[in-house]
């Protein structure tokens, strides 16, 4: 019984041309038993920075609340909204604070910075950052997500094509994972628009 796999769930983020996308499944489970299928794992940090926290569901909520507090404190002290790059480091140091008793989550981050450049990042449960240029994955279906994303993703996808790519990546990956699935949510972030879509998925 692994703590990281107790509740199940997966996230993925991808870079497009002037846009980014981030998606998660909706399952909340207790080992093999599904408790709920409305459990979103992706949250907004700012208007154009989003992050997903798959892993232990309790820590998903705890860290989400903690990050909300820290992002608000940053906004008040600096009198500006936090950049996705800075936010990634904020998440990383928040996790590293608990180096020897970690929060059991592996975050993915997606956003568009002040120069309208797309940005994604991921990290492990103690905050080791990974700034990928293409896509990042996390959660119980991460291996399957790697296989899907590696073969579907291509550079400079427009927002609509990026949405299709990330949706197919997530759906086909979670369909082969018993701990993920039961619905999915996809966010596409463009420089002046954010779209949230619920995907119709297999419910088994």
């Amino acid at each position: 019984m692994s703590i990281m796999e107790l509740n199940g769930g997966s996230c993925v983020a991808m870079v497009g041309k002037g846009c980014v996308a981030i998606a998660c499944d909706l399952r909340l489970g207790n080992q093999a038993l599904t408790i709920a299928c409305n459990h979103e794992k992706v949250f907004a940090a700012t208007e154009r920075t989003y992050y997903g926290l798959p892993g232990l569901a309790s820590d998903t909520i705890t860290v989400r609340d903690k990050l909300r507090q820290r992002v608000n404190l940053y906004a008040m002290k600096e009198e500006r909204t936090i950049e996705p790059e800075t936010f990634a480091h904020l998440v990383s140091s928040t996790l590293y604070e608990r180096r020897f008793g970690p929060y059991f989550i592996e975050p993915v981050i997606a956003g568009i910075n002040v120069k309208d450049e797309p940005f994604i990042a991921a990290m492990d449960l103690i905050g080791c950052l990974n700034f990928a240029k293409d896509f990042v994955v996390s959660g119980t279906a991460s291996e399957k997500l790697f296989g899907m994303a590696e073969s579907l993703w291509e550079p400079d996808l427009e927002a609509e094509d990026l949405f299709e790519t990330i949706s197919q990546t997530l759906l086909n990956a979670v369909d082969r994972d018993a701990y993920s699935g039961w619905g999915a949510v996809v966010w596409v972030i463009e420089k002046d628009k954010v779209t949230k879509r619920w995907l119709k998925a297999r419910m088994d």
Binding site: E143, K144, F146, G147, M148, E150, S151, L152, S167, Q168, L171, N172, A173, D175, R176, A201
Partner: peptide
């Protein structure tokens, strides 16, 4: 070794799953 990477891709492209 890479079954978990390849099989979902085949589901998608050969069986047209989720399409």
């Amino acid at each position: 070794a890479a079954q978990s990477l390849v099989q979902p891709f085949l589901d998608n492209m050969v069986y047209s799953k989720n399409q």
